[in-house]
Computed example of a mutant assay.
Amino acid sequence: MTRTEADSSEAERKPRPFKALRETVLLLVFAIALALVVKTFFVQSFYIPSESMEPGLIVNDRILVEKPSYWGSGGPQRGDVIVFDDPGNWLNGLEAEQPMSFLARALAKIGLYPTGGHLVKRVIGVAGDTIVCCDAQGRLSINGQPVDEDAFIEPQRGRDACDGPMPSGAQHCNWTVGPVPSGSLFVMGDNRDDSADSSARLCRPDAEGCDENKPYVPISDVVGKVFALAWPLGRAELVGRPDAFDDVPDAS
Rank of each mutant, 00 (worst) to 15 (best):
A200K: 07
V29E: 06
E154A: 15
D80N: 09
G93C: 07
Y70M: 04
I131R: 00
D246A: 14
H118K: 07
F41Q: 11
P165L: 00
A228T: 04
V123F: 01
N174E: 08
M53P: 04
G128P: 01
D194S: 12
K121R: 03
S168P: 05
I32G: 08
D197M: 11
F18A: 15
V29K: 05
I110W: 02
N89C: 06
Q145N: 06
S184R: 09
N191T: 03
K39G: 06
A6V: 15
G79N: 02
A136P: 05
E54T: 05
Q171W: 06
D197R: 10
L103D: 04
P146D: 00
D206R: 03
A127N: 03
P15C: 04
E97W: 11
V226K: 04
W231F: 13
R3I: 11
M100W: 10
R122W: 02
V43R: 07
R13L: 15
V38L: 15
A33C: 10
D150V: 10
A251D: 02
W90R: 15
G75K: 13
E5K: 12
F152S: 05
P49E: 02
G117Q: 04
P181W: 05
L107D: 14
M1G: 15
S45N: 09
H118W: 12
S50K: 06
A228E: 11
Q98N: 11
D7M: 13
V38G: 14
D190G: 07
R157W: 05
